[in-house]
Amino acid sequence: MTADRRLTLHVNGITHSCEVEPRMTLADCLREKLDLTGTHLGCEHGVCGACTVIVDGAAVRSCLMFAVQARDSMITTVEGLAASDTLSDLQQAFHDHFALQCGFCTPGFLTTAEAFLSENPSPTRGEVQSAISGNICRCTGYVPIIDAIVDTAKRRLESGK
């Protein structure tokens, strides 16, 4: 039973099929089996948030979930946030507010913020701050990241999106 298992995963609207050992985390499966390397691994014990992906609408740590546990779920990774080659409004806001430098943490912030905004479309600044408390950025500083998320929420409300 420790042997590889055939697995079907629904990621960013595409159904993939792969073989994984039970011990393979969802993060490793996305990166190594599906070549979706936008999901980053920082700490592998739930602390840094770099590996955050959206599973059935909820932002979760993909380093703390096994791929076999995600078999019936709808998964969104950072690669799935923009519909085409154009950045999503949230990604564009990160760009506009200088909310990234090295970009290592960025996929985790984007997926966290996207899931958070769909739950709470009109957050206060404080609520945004709490929502990203589980994501660590070592180089940009959090103020521009919070600005980008607050700004996206405002624009979405204005445009009724």
Binding site: T52, A58, A59, V60, L64, M65, S133, G134
Partner: peptide, 9 residues
């Protein structure tokens, strides 16, 4: 308790 992503699981 922890952060939103941890509470989601």
């Amino acid at each position: 308790i922890a952060h939103m992503q941890i509470r989601n699981r």
